[in-house]
């Protein structure tokens, strides 16, 4: 094999020699598996991939990837990954984080990486709980959640991560779940191929402290009625027998019955490039889908704007053109000098 040819790798090659230490049955395992599966399909040399994580159960992730990796400090992964990617645009940078890590202690960094649009793939494992610290409510826990730190129920109103990302002008916003690995696989591919920050929220079951938080969407029986799989250019259809659709009445969405007077032509056609509509989709967020709207999965929004690190390089090239080759001697002497002796 010539050294400049890409070795043919498999998911196994991306598995490090470290024992994986999540609780048996944790949703993190399936996500790890899918990420390891996707890696060899990207055509990127293993040594050019870096996984960066904060703190939390999910943030142990880099230790299990046989790539370069950084396990950092709580909440700061977006800033660390930004510095890495901006200084090394040649690398494929992945950031693994949880709901506490990126929406609580690291909330500030998250919104700023999204607005800057550094080309990082962010996978937010949302389990609506603090797992590593053994079960306190998180910024995505539903109101009234009873945990060790909220014995009478939490009073906090939770974040809607996708609305937040859209509000921060994220250029790629998607949702997936641990229990649908095939779909997760496609979303990961989409995130990888997007230039600019990709934000993927992954519903992840914490079997120990918040088991079943997403059963409504992950359970094979309830899923068809509660989950809406988005596909570009396709009408929004869901339901066990694909009998329900979402229609737009002006800017107001409504659920219609396809067996009762409505056809696919009447429905909202998914357009990933429509920011307004993506925002409406992100608002399908009622606890237990009480408002009747299904929870969307897939790519809600994609928009191409230049990644930050490219703009940085352009500016450096401009500075070089404007100032000419760096001249240390001239810099040391400055404009005004005098001689003594």
């Amino acid at each position: 094999m010539k050294s400049n040819e890409l070795e043919v790798l498999t998911g196994k090659d991306f598995s490090s020699d470290q024992d994986v230490r999540w609780c048996p049955g944790c949703g993190d395992y399936t996500i790890l598996k899918q990420v390891q599966n996707v890696m060899p399909e990207l055509g990127i040399p293993k040594e050019n991939i870096v996984f960066v994580a904060g703190i939390g159960c999910s943030s142990r992730f880099p230790y299990y990837m046989n790539t370069y990796g950084m396990h950092t400090i709580h909440g700061r992964a977006p800033a660390i990954a930004s510095g890495l990617k901006i200084s090394r645009p040649d690398l494929s940078v992945w950031m693994i984080t949880g709901d506490g890590d990126s929406l609580s202690i690291g909330g500030n960094h998250l919104i700023h990486v999204l607005r800057r649009n550094v080309d990082i793939n962010i996978l937010l494992f949302n389990n609506e709980i603090y797992g590593l610290t053994k079960g306190q409510y998180s910024p995505t826990s539903k109101e009234g959640t009873k945990t060790k730190s909220t014995p009478y129920g939490s009073l906090d109103h939770p974040f809607n991560p996708l609305s937040l990302a859209l509000g921060a002008d994220s250029g790629f916003v998607a949702r997936a779940m641990d229990r649908d690995p095939k779909h997760l696989n496609t979303v990961l591919h989409r995130a990888a191929s997007h230039k600019g920050t990709s934000f993927v929220e992954i519903y992840q079951n914490c079997i120990v402290f918040n088991d079943g938080a997403f059963d409504l969407y992950t359970d094979k029986v309830s899923r068809p009625e509660s989950a809406l799989y988005l596909e570009q250019g396709q009408p929004l259809i869901f339901g066990a027998d694909s009998s329900k659709g979402v229609r737009l009445d002006g800017m107001r969405p409504e659920i219609v019955d396809l067996n009762n007077g409505y056809s696919a032509e009447d429905l909202w056609i998914h357009d990933e490039h429509d920011h307004m509509k993506a925002y409406i989709l992100s608002r399908f967020f009622a606890v237990g889908n009480e408002d009747g709207f299904p929870r969307p999965f897939g790519v809600l929004f994609e928009q191409n704007r230049p990644p930050y690190e490219e703009l940085v390089r352009e500016q450096m090239a401009y500075a070089l053109k404007k100032n000419g080759a760096p001249d240390l001697e001239a810099l040391l002497s400055g404009d005004e000098t005098w001689v003594v002796g």
Binding site: K85, H112, A319
Partner: peptide, 24 residues
């Protein structure tokens, strides 16, 4: 033009951690 990137971060913590990411 001296191959120096300056990055005005969102806060003091991001300022240092971005530099740590770049150092890696």
């Amino acid at each position: 033009h001296f191959n120096i990137i300056t990055y005005q971060a969102e806060d003091e913590i991001a300022a240092i951690t971005s530099a740590i990411g770049a150092a890696f």
